[in-house]
Amino acid sequence: MASKPLFIMLCSGEHEKIQLAAMIASVAAVSDRPVEVFVTMNAVLPFQRGLSKEQRYQGGHFHEEFMVKNVPDAIELFEQGKMLGDLKMWVCSMVLDLKHWEHDRDLVDGLFDGPAGLAKFLSDAEDGELITL
């Protein structure tokens, strides 16, 4: 039986939350489960193109340990999930409009499948399980 799709709404820019979203998304995707991630509000900011690791990842109790220990990089986990499984990444079109950003110009190269609106994401998520971080 096909697995129920997993939908993740990531709205926190805290390193811990991004790390957890990346872990859940990548492991679910490589476990034959379709995954869609909707990145919105200040969670979009760490995905800006050209940031150093120190600029990109901030916040959360385990942030310092993530930075110095051999914990997989969150962006790389999302990329592995896309490469090895059925993982799609969407960025909130409202946030892009507010920042005057384009997903394929200002965000991490090749990570996002495109901009998306909240109504479309919520409609699609009715067919699966929704996690908000």
């Binding site: 990548s26 492991v27 051999n70």
Partner: peptide, 11 residues
């Protein structure tokens, strides 16, 4: 490597 690094390497 910490979770889920080993699993991803295996896959």
């Amino acid at each position: 490597a910490f979770c889920p690094g080993p699993l991803m390497e295996l896959i």
